[in-house]
Design a protein around this nucleic acid. Structure first.
Lengths: 292, 292
DNA sequence: AGAGGTTACGGGCAGCGTAAGGATC
DNA sequence: GATCCTTACGCTGCCCGTAACCTCT
């Protein structure tokens, strides 16, 4: 009996098939067959009923699953508590919404790769909805998104909120929201929908809303006087101090953007757990440094 | 990280040396070195301080030890609860006192090897004192002896007691313990010492006591009229029904022989745990079948 | 035909034992 | 020199991937 066998068993049980487990573990499918059947013959017990459309746990298999989970849990615990982080190797896939990427993500990456120098990082920047799916499909290990992700398998660590203020080009006259478009987050995002609803209610159907998937492009458009819009105060400070943009008050303020660091609780991943923790620390100290 | 590495680590920690662990695990000493140093480099942590006279756990090593014990415990649990006994292989070393060997040991061996057909059995018959030492030195895995063994590491399962009755050759006249020797268990045993003390008190210094390490030889001597002695009633029934010996009452009866099935609780051994359980069952049913 | 699992086979590498090497008393 | 652990090295055997095969829809 080896850890690899138990881990393989665990994933076959969890995903309900040898082929799916082979993808999860980056192995050939026959390798999964070998591992499982070796384990079965070592224990002298059949763990799966093979049906044409996948596999199902036998009674023995069900019993083993609990123990296998314990094993993998303790193993992660060892990696977390005993192992030296600088020796941990692997690939860690991070997904981030652009707001975070523009804010404290660089500092996070610095801190993370400092603690885990031998871990390679895959970074994806996307909108929260896509990140959520990627996370649930295990295409990424840790996501910074507008959460929380409410699936019960997902752990959500709350991150500091971003207050939204309204900005317009410096020196432009009073703002008439009927005349100048409002630019905001990409169309499929929650802040976009919220803003859309609020503006329709207050301004009427003539309001024009641009949406942009690129935060920095949006800010450039604001600075160029093409549009106005609500943006995280903390991210506007650069153009603000350059004198390119200025705040204004259209009479209401969208609710702050709430982010979480989210990861799958099962199976355990030390990197995801610790990554979320580091993110919380970094985000808080970044928030203090960049407070109004 | 593998089970073998953790097990090796455990034994090195427990025995305080690589060489001792290599003997415990039946491996060469360099193999222990390799395993430990591989584990150390995988965790990126030094687990042992190497001193000229052995090794000592580092702080990290101490932390790991707890987790390693958990792992090995769960592993044994899997073998015990999930694995099919008929597939378990290995060597199981049993030590038994002769009384047990003459009583229900054959039936026990039959039941045990029936449940674990692929486990080889090493049987040693010796006096309880030696069995106790062998057990503590891990030369045997399970001992049937006059217990309990009071070391805190040892688990003791109580077995049915053996009542001692006095026997003499059939047809011989009234017994004068001043005239005929008393034969009993080997000199280093507890029943011998108890009997010695009791006889000295009651009969006086002239009493002669033979001691014999062989139960069957002793019974033969009684049957031959050379001596008389107290023996387990259950074991005398053969010669009794053949009409070779008969009971008599010298006015007192030694206390019954109390046996235990004893094994080391740490590290766990499924075979020892289950073996003790089987022994208890077999001994009880044997006791009923052979009751006066 | 296609999806899912098994069997067959060759090759690479982990890990063993033997043997030699260092350190400390 | 004795004891204990480490290093060196050749070899064996395990386990992976490729490829062919089986079975059920």
């Amino acid at each position: 009996m080896t850890f690899e066998q138990l881990k393989t068993f665990y994933w076959v049980a969890r995903l309900g098939g040898f082929r799916r487990a082979s993808e999860q573990l980056s192995l050939s499918q026959p390798a999964i067959s070998t591992r499982v059947s070796t384990l079965e013959s070592e224990l002298g017990v059949v763990l799966f009923e093979r049906t044409p459309k996948g596999v199902a746990l036998t009674k023995s298999g069900t019993m083993l699953l609990g123990y296998a989970e314990q094993m993998l849990f303790v193993q992660e615990e060892i990696v977390k508590r005993v192992a030296n982080p600088s020796k941990i190797e692997g690939l860690f896939r991070i997904g981030s919404s652009e707001t975070i990427a523009q804010a404290w993500l660089p500092e996070f990456l610095k801190a993370f790769s400092n603690e885990y120098p031998r871990v390679n990082i895959d970074l994806t920047v996307d909108i929260s909805g896509n990140l959520r799916n990627s996370l649930l499909q295990q295409d990424i290990d840790l996501a910074f998104l507008m959460g929380p992700v409410s699936e019960f398998t997902v752990e959500n660590v709350d991150l500091p909120k971003f207050d939204l203020h309204w900005y317009k080009a410096k020196g432009s006259g009073p703002v008439d929201l009927q005349a100048i478009p409002v630019i905001s987050y990409a169309a499929k995002t929650r802040p976009y929908r919220e803003l859309m609803a609020e503006l329709s209610r207050r301004i009427g159907p003539n309001v024009r809303i641009y949406s942009s998937a690129s935060l920095s492009a949006s800010l450039q458009m604001i600075a160029a006087g093409i549009a106005v819009g609500p943006y995280p105060q903390a991210l506007a400070s650069g153009l603000l101090s350059l004198g390119r943009i200025e705040e204004f008050d259209p009479g209401f303020q969208p609710s702050p953007l709430a982010f979480t660091a989210s990861y799958l609780g099962e199976p355990r991943s030390v990197l995801a757990e610790r990554g979320a923790e580091i993110a919380r620390e970094i985000a808080h100290s970044w928030g203090k440094d960049n407070a109004g």
